[in-house]
Write a protein that binds this DNA or RNA. Structure first.
Lengths: 339, 339
DNA sequence: CTGTTAGCGCATTCAG
DNA sequence: CTGAATGCGCTAACAG
C-alpha cells in the first residue's frame, strides 16, 4: 500500500486534473470547499484522483489568488502567562471550528514591539487581528480602525474597538459578595494595574459589593499593583502586617492570589483558616495548591467565540463591547469567618 | 503629515517601481534583503519611494515564488504547560535572530492530532518543523525524514531524528547528587512517563548518582507517573506515607514537585524542613512558592538555537543529538539532613 | 547594474 | 456544468 503521506507535497492541482481527465479549473471548482459538493461524475473522479495522489491545496498560492488567507493573528504579551495561553488555546479552538487557522505572536509589554509584531502578522497575510494586549491608552486599535483591518480586543478593552471581555465588574462583585456571605467585613482588595480595564473593572465590582453590604471601602485595605506573583507576595505581606489586618483578600488575578498565599505562609498564617483568599481566572494550577484556591472563572471559550464574531463582522449589530459572565468556583481558600 | 502606516497595505512593488522610475525587477532586487545593499542612484530612489509609499512586501506572494516562507512551525502538546510556553518563546527568539518567523500549533497528546496539525503547518508553507512532542514510539519524525522535510525535535528525542535536548541524564544526576551532598540517603524518585526520553534519562542520571554514592536504588522509593500536578500529589502522598518514608524526593518536573509540596502540606510536613524536594525545569513560578523550590534549570535558549541549526542543516556534521547542560538552582526546598 | 520575459499554484473571469 | 485564458504580487533566468 502506498502511504499518501509520503508524497502529497508537490502534487499540484494540475496533476489532479490530469489524472481525473479534466481541466484545472474544473478540479479547482470541485475541490473548493465553499461550493456545495457536486455529484457529477467528473467531480467524483476529481475527488478520487485528489485522494489517490494525496493532493493538498497549496494554501500560499490559494491565498495569493483569493486575497485572503483564512488565518487570524493573535497578539499576546507573553505565552508564559497561563491566562494568555488559555486565551490563545480558546481562540485556536474557535478558529478551528470555523475552519480558520490561528497564529500567535508575542510582544511583551512594549507598545513599539506590539506595533512591530502586528505588522509582521499583517505581512504574513492574516485577515484578522485579535489583540490581548490593549492597554487603555493603547494607540494600536485606533490605527487598525483607520486602516479598516478587521480586529477585536479580548480580555481588555479600549472602550472603542470591538471587544470581547469577561464581565470584570460582575466578577469582582461575585468574589467580594462571596466573602461577605461568609461573614467577612474587613476585606482587602488587591487590584490589578490601573491602566488595564480588568484592573479597573474588577475593583469597581468589588467595591460595589462592599457598598451594597453597607461597608465603605477602606483605602488602607486597597492596593493597586502589577499582575505578577511577586506583586502578590509584597502586597499580601503589607496587608497582613497591618495592625488591623483584613480577614479576607480579593486578588485581581490568580498570580496575585498565589503570592498572597505565599505571604500568608511566610507570616505563619494558614490560607483558608486564618485568611480567606479569592483569585481570578481559575487557571488550572490553583485547584491543585495545598489549599485549593477559590477563584472567579473566566469564560475563555465564550470570549473567544464572541471575539471572532465581532472581528469578522458576522455580527455587526449591537454593542461593540461584549461581556461574558464569569462564575465563582468556591474552594478551600475561603472559609466562614468564625464569629 | 501623511501617516504611512495608514496606507502601505495595498502598495505593490509595481507602484514603487513606477514611483522610482525603474522596472519591477530592479525594485525587487534592491529590496531583496538577501543581497547586500547597492549604492547606485536607482537603488537609492527605490528605497526612498518604498519608504515614501509605505511599501511592505507581500510575504504570501513572495513565498509562492521563492518556494520558501521563512517560517518555521513549532508543534507542542499544549501551551498552557509552562515548559512548552517557555520552549516556544525561546524558539521564537532564536527564529527572530535569524529573521525567521515562528508559528505554533498545539496537538494535545493525540498522535493523530499531531499528524493533522503538522500537515496544517506544512500546508501553510512552513519550511521547517520543530517538534516538542515526540514520544519515543512516535512515527511522525520518521515520516518527516522520509519526506525530507527539514525538522528537529526539542526537549525529547526519538534517538534518530536531529534532536536538541537538555542533558536529562546530567540533570537527574545533578539533582540527586545535590541531595546526597546534603546528607540524604533515602531519596524518593518521582520519574516522568517511561515513554518519554526525558522521563527515562532523568531517572537514569538520578540512579547513577545514587549508585556512585554507594546507594542501591530502592524500587519502593521509585514511581513512574505522568507530568501533571495531580500525579505529583498522588505519588507524593504515596511516598510520604511509606513506613520508612524518604527524607528527600527528586521529581522529574516542576509540576510533580509542586504536587509533592502539596502532598507534604496535606500530611502536615513542611517542605524544606521535613522533606527536601528538587524539581526540574525551573519554571518561573517555583521561585515564588511559599517554600521556593530547588530546581534543575533547562537551557531553553541554547536548546532553541541548536534546534534551528540542526533543522536548517546549517550544521550537518557531528552528533544529530545535541544535549545542553542544565544547571542546578538551589533554593529553600532542600536542606541539610539533620544528623 | 538593468529591463524583459516567464512563471510559482491557484481561483476566477468569460465563453461555450 | 465545463475549459481556456488571465493575473494575484513577486522573483528568477536570461539577455542586454
Amino acid at each position: 500500500m502506498i502511504s499518501h503521506d509520503d508524497q502529497g507535497r508537490g502534487v499540484t492541482l494540475k496533476d489532479v486534473a490530469q489524472a481525473a481527465g479534466v481541466s484545472v479549473s474544473t478540479a479547482s471548482r470541485v475541490l473548493d470547499e465553499r461550493n456545495r459538493p457536486s455529484t457529477s461524475s467528473a467531480a467524483t473522479r476529481v475527488r478520487l484522483a485528489a485522494d489517490e495522489l494525496g493532493y493538498r491545496r497549496n494554501a500560499v498560492a490559494s491565498s495569493l489568488r483569493r486575497g485572503e488567507t483564512g488565518t487570524l493573528g493573535v497578539l499576546v504579551p507573553r505565552l508564559t502567562d497561563t491566562v494568555m495561553a488559555l486565551m490563545f488555546e480558546a481562540i485556536e479552538r474557535a478558529a478551528r471550528a470555523r475552519r480558520h487557522f490561528a497564529l500567535v505572536a508575542t510582544c511583551g509589554d512594549d507598545p513599539q514591539e506590539e506595533t512591530r509584531a502586528t505588522e509582521t502578522l499583517l505581512d504574513r497575510g492574516v485577515d484578522t487581528v485579535i489583540l490581548a494586549t490593549a492597554r487603555l491608552d493603547d494607540t494600536l486599535p485606533a490605527s487598525l480602525r483607520r486602516r479598516r483591518i478587521p480586529h477585536a480586543l479580548v480580555l481588555r478593552s479600549d472602550g472603542v474597538s470591538p471587544s470581547s471581555v469577561g464581565d470584570d465588574d460582575a466578577g469582582g462583585f461575585l468574589a467580594v459578595r462571596h466573602l461577605i456571605d461568609l461573614g467577612h467585613r474587613r476585606i482587602g482588595l488587591l487590584n490589578g494595574p490601573a491602566y488595564t480595564s480588568t484592573g479597573r473593572d474588577r475593583r469597581a465590582g468589588a467595591e460595589r459589593a462592599l457598598r451594597e453590604a453597607g461597608i465603605e471601602p477602606d483605602p488602607a485595605l486597597s492596593c493597586s499593583v502589577g499582575y505578577g506573583v511577586s506583586d502578590g507576595i509584597d502586597a499580601g505581606r503589607h496587608l497582613l502586617e497591618l495592625p488591623q489586618r483584613p480577614t479576607a483578600i480579593f486578588a485581581a488575578n490568580d498570580n496575585l492570589a498565589i503570592g498572597v498565599q505565599t505571604a500568608a505562609r511566610l507570616l505563619g498564617y494558614v490560607p483558608g483558616r486564618d485568611i480567606s483568599i479569592v483569585g481570578y481566572n481559575d487557571i488550572p494550577l490553583v485547584a491543585q495548591l495545598p489549599v485549593p484556591l477559590t477563584s472567579v472563572r473566566t469564560a475563555f471559550d465564550s470570549i473567544a467565540a464572541t471575539a471572532l464574531e465581532l472581528a469578522t463582522g458576522s455580527d455587526v449589530r449591537g454593542e461593540p463591547i461584549r461581556r461574558a459572565l464569569p462564575t465563582l468556583i468556591p474552594r478551600e481558600s475561603t472559609k466562614r469567618l468564625a464569629p
